[in-house]
Design a binder for these strands. Structure first.
Length: 205
DNA sequence: TGAATGATGCGCT
DNA sequence: GCGCATCATTCAT
């Protein structure tokens, strides 16, 4: 029985948390059933000195969760129709979070397929908006405690990836206009569930 | 095969 | 009122 990651995991420098999040297992015990997936793509948003972070301009009603304790979920609505899931990191009063951009579905595939119309399973969660839709996460779940039993992360058991550990690659973040120079995006180059790959040679599925 | 764009709601100035 | 940490579809080449 794997144990969930506790608050000390999130109470660390955000870039460190990012790198270790790749390959962990995201679990959501939703009212409709259990869902889980392997994290393969994340981005860091650090309030101090990061113009792209919602918290860069100070505390507001929307981003207040990021200013709180680490280990909570920050979920917000973007473009009027999509939700994005973030995990709050670093100490209280130090606003920072990790955006989950892509995951590989493990459990609850049937539920995800009902919510999404995609045909390929790996397309269910290869993007921040899509993963929230497939998981059924909305800003009603904003502020959930990640050390509770609804939504949490747990380590993949060591033997699970016997084929090879995730190949972690850094790149620039996606979909932002400020702070583009920072290499604060981390993804597993071996996964298909990454939202944007640099240049796939030939991908025939 | 890639670039452009519309959908759509809310937080902030 | 504007702009946004997106996605799917349309249009152009």
């Amino acid at each position: 029985m794997a144990r969930k990651l506790d608050r000390t995991f999130y109470d660390r420098p955000t870039l460190e948390v990012c790198e270790e999040l790749i390959g962990q297992r995201l679990v959501y015990r939703s009212p409709d059933g259990n869902l889980s997936a392997r994290v393969v793509e994340v981005e860091a948003y650090i309030g101090q000195g990061d113009p792209a972070c919602h918290a860069a301009r100070g505390k507001t009603g929307r981003n207040r969760v990021m200013f709180g304790k680490p280990g909570f979920a920050y979920i917000y609505l973007i473009y009027g129709m999509y939700n994005c899931l973030n995990l709050v990191t670093e100490a209280e009063g130090h606003p920072a979070a990790v955006l989950i951009r892509g995951v590989e579905p493990l459990e609850g595939l049937e539920l995800m397929r009902v919510r999404s119309k995609t045909k390929q399973d790996w397309q269910l969660c290869n993007g921040p908006g899509k993963l929230c839709r497939s998981f059924g996460l909305t800003r009603e779940q904003n502020g959930l405690d990640l050390t509770g039993d609804k939504l949490y992360l747990e380590p993949m058991s060591v033997g699970d990836n016997s084929g090879g550990r995730p190949r972690i690659v850094k790149s620039t973040r996606i979909g932002i206009s400020a702070g583009q120079e920072k290499l604060w995006r981390f993804y597993d180059a071996n996964s298909q569930a990454v939202s944007k790959m640099p240049k796939p040679k030939a991908s025939v599925q």
